[in-house]
Amino acid sequence: MSVLVVLEQRGALKTCGLEAVSAARKAADASGMSLNAIYIGKSLDDEVSLLAGLGIDTVYAYEHDDLRYYSNDRYVPLLCELVKELGAKVIVGSATSLGKELCASAAARLTAELAQDCISLRWDGKLLAEKPLYAGKVISEVSFGVLPGVVTIRPNVVVVEREGEALPQVVKRTLPELPFRSVIQDVVENVSGTIELTEAKIVVSGGRGIGGPENWRVLQELCDTLGAALGASRSAVDAGWIESSHQVGQTGKVVCPDLYIACGISGAVQHLAGMRTSKIVVAINNDSEAPIFNVCDYGIVGDLLEVVPKFAEEVRNAQ
């Protein structure tokens, strides 16, 4: 019996995949199951050292140029075949856009239950996972009565833990012939240098309070100083001030950074749905009555156009 973790890669191994391993390791240890991983991608060779000390017994590596980009037609059968071959009882992936699709499709093929976007995982006689409901307003702990069970882990909530330097055994697999139903015609990457929202350790977000699109540069400057990603409220997106891919919230992205800085955002529940599990929340707002001050750790009452540049300057001076 084993726990099987999907090592997410998008060109390179992603930290969220290592986090999934650490989450899975505890469940594997408590249940006495072995911990294995699956890699589907171009090549793991240069990156095996990233797996040192994570407690993985064996990594099954499906390596091929054609596997560089996620394709449902290829990834889903490879994962499902390996699950069956190993008799894996618990499958752990990452709650990213691709990770969720992969795990949903695989769960269907395996006739298994699935809990997406989990914030904790444990084994106590059975598999237990905590996941948000109602756009994060309620947290539910679910148990799997039937295995295999599939879970995905929200990025940034689990800490990657290493013990020693041991490397996993790598078993290389060849790519079987698989029928194709869909074709990737193009892969468009966002302008390099911008940090992806859902992976960022720090997110600086702006709302209607920034006053107009010309003021993003004020927030962008703080982002550049901090190495942060830029987020936005729906009002800012709906006003046409920024692309919707920056939206944080119920109808946008869910982020879970170490630090979330909300600038000119009132703190509507739908916005909170996207950033509630951030470790530290800072609010900058000129209205001392703004609801965001009831859900932040630190608040500054003031005009963001004054506060944000001063804060960026403070950080730069200290660096």
């Binding site: 994060g136 702990e141 799997f144 009565g145 599990t277 932040c296 750790d297």
Partner: peptide, 15 residues
């Protein structure tokens, strides 16, 4: 094959 064991409200212990 899955059951809710317990529901809770999210942490609200911000400073």
């Amino acid at each position: 094959g899955m059951a809710i064991e317990k529901l809770s409200l999210p942490r609200q212990d911000r400073l």
